[in-house]
Amino acid sequence: MRRLALAVLTIWGVATAVFFMIKAIPGDEAQIAAGRTATPEQIAQARERLGLDHNVLVQYGDYLQRLLHGDLGTSVVTFQPIRVDLATVLPPTLELVALTMVFNIAIAVPLGVFSALRHGRSGDTASRLIMVLGGGVPVFWLALMLQYLIGSRLGWLPISGRNGFGLESPPVTGLATVDALLAGNIAGLWDAVQHLILPALALSAPFLAVVARSIRSSMVGALRADHVAFARAKGASNARIIWRHALPNALVPTLVLLGMQFGWMMGAALLVESVFSIPGVGTYLNTAVTSQDTYAVLGAVLVLGLVFVLANLFVDLIQLWLDPRTRQAVAA
């Protein structure tokens, strides 16, 4: 319950901060909304329509009030309700981030465990080198390289968009993979996944570098723990020690990190969305910022904040399930 209140507070804080930051950007919103060739009358009209003739605090109050009713406002660029805009740009990003998370975990956990088991030896050094490279390489550069090498030179995977021509499925959820599945379009599903692999791989690099390091260090600690020595004294095999006694304990601290990363990935998705021409939140937000589309920016940021908060709530739940000590602390 306290977490939930905290979540609402976080969202409100994000909304407020973003609102005032946008208002602080120089430039006349009414001018932009009315268009480059607008007459002074048209600009005045736009100003009135958008409520820009009121003072900033009144605008802020109005905005919060509308927000409570679920009204995010109308975009001055697309002339659509922002809720509708977001409903079309959010699914591609969610899909991308979900697969990125899968790659993140699937690569980082084995890498971190391997590194910890080879602690101080050459295998460890090699894995740590991979981690540093993953963390240091700019995502957009890696995206371009993957696109060039695997997509263009080798031709293994498609390099842009979400679906091949003629393989689209009727949109239900907006998630290309889920829609294909719903439509029973297996070729379309495979095609949609193929389109996601390269961007997700590129996006996962900096995140998996951090996760692998976290896993490595907590795993090194866990392997030295007394309870691991005791498990060994009970006759447990090395595999049993790793999977049952060390890894679950090492995962607990990393879990929190994964929760936050989900939110960061939503924001960082822009870097690969633009390279791979995916019409996602990142691209939308980018356009909105450059055209000073206040409410579109606010809406997109709020959604990102919401995803961030939800991901963390979800992680808290997993942690409760995993760690009996926190479970008891919450019950008490």
């Binding site: 309870h227 498990a231 049952r244």
Partner: peptide, 8 residues
């Protein structure tokens, strides 16, 4: 307190 696994 450390020789037993807290999660099991």
């Amino acid at each position: 307190s450390t020789a037993l696994n807290p999660l099991r």
